[in-house]
């Protein structure tokens, strides 16, 4: 009978959370606007996790709040009832089983999205991105063009070929949801498919020394014509 009386509390908690969810994230979305094919998968992974975890959070907090209301000692010498082992065993087993299944499910889901994000190795454009303290150098082999600004073609699949001259740096464009370190002595490929024309910032997101803060550069996603133009033009 006590167990039943939990239900309204859970319901209220759930209702509150959903309301707060819309109130807050309707106004302040959780993620910046997505601008790459990969971002879609990252975001779906995120949304899945967020939903499940909000539920877990709500249940746990709701339970604690209920206990705070229902199980206070009125006089100091009151004692709670010694737990009854037989019921305990069942709860333990159930909880462990549930959380194991849940975690494995989450991991499987994550693995699936990861494969989607990484995708195949086919690419329309190769772009070499060379990091060094504290600047980015971009090279387009096909057009033999150098520059510090990263131009990408809308809807095309790019192979970003990352190298570093000195220490570890990291390639990150929030709207693309992709991050990849540039490691000295290694050549690392990052597959990237921008889907929305516009200007973005490329951020170095691995601490690389004094001026790590300022190690940023511009990214511009252009449609086919503009891109070809840009590649012919002088940088």
């Amino acid at each position: 009978m006590k167990n039943k009386s939990v239900i309204p509390f859970v319901a209220v908690a759930a209702a509150l959370i959903t309301w707060a969810y819309h109130a807050v994230f309707g106004r302040w979305p959780m993620m910046p606007a997505a601008a790459s094919a990969e971002a879609a998968f990252v975001d779906s992974a995120w949304n899945g996790l967020f939903a499940i975890e909000t539920a877990i959070y709500g249940l746990v907090v709701g339970f604690i709040l209920y206990c705070l209301v229902a199980f206070r000692a009125k006089s100091r010498d009151e004692q709670g009832d010694a737990s009854d082992r037989s019921r305990g065993r069942l709860v333990e087993a159930g909880w462990i089983l549930a959380s194991t299944i849940l975690t494995l499910a989450l991991a499987a889901f994550g693995a699936k999205e990861l494969r989607a994000v990484v995708g195949g190795t086919h690419a329309d454009h190769d772009v070499e991105v060379r990091a060094s303290q504290f600047s980015w150098e971009i090279y387009y082999p096909k057009y033999n063009q150098y520059g510090s600004k990263l131009f990408l073609e809308e809807g095309k699949r790019h192979r970003i070929i990352l190298t570093s001259k000195d220490v570890v740096h990291s390639f990150w464009v929030p709207e693309f949801r992709l991050k990849q370190d540039a490691v000295p002595g290694k050549v690392i490929h990052l597959m990237l498919t921008p889907t929305v024309k516009g200007e973005y910032t490329l951020l170095c997101s691995e601490l690389c020394g004094a001026d790590h803060t300022t190690m940023t550069s511009l990214v511009e996603v252009l449609d086919h014509e503009a891109f070809e133009e840009q590649m012919k033009a002088e940088f």
């Binding site: 996790l49 975890e53 999205e113 990861l114 991050k179 997101s205």
Partner: peptide, 22 residues
């Protein structure tokens, strides 16, 4: 509880690609 639960998106490789070092 908050700290632990927010560890999961970090442990989740696809989302960590975005969240790492932020």
């Amino acid at each position: 509880l908050v700290g632990g639960l927010t560890g999961i998106p970090l442990a989740d490789a696809p989302t960590d690609l975005h969240l790492h070092d932020t």
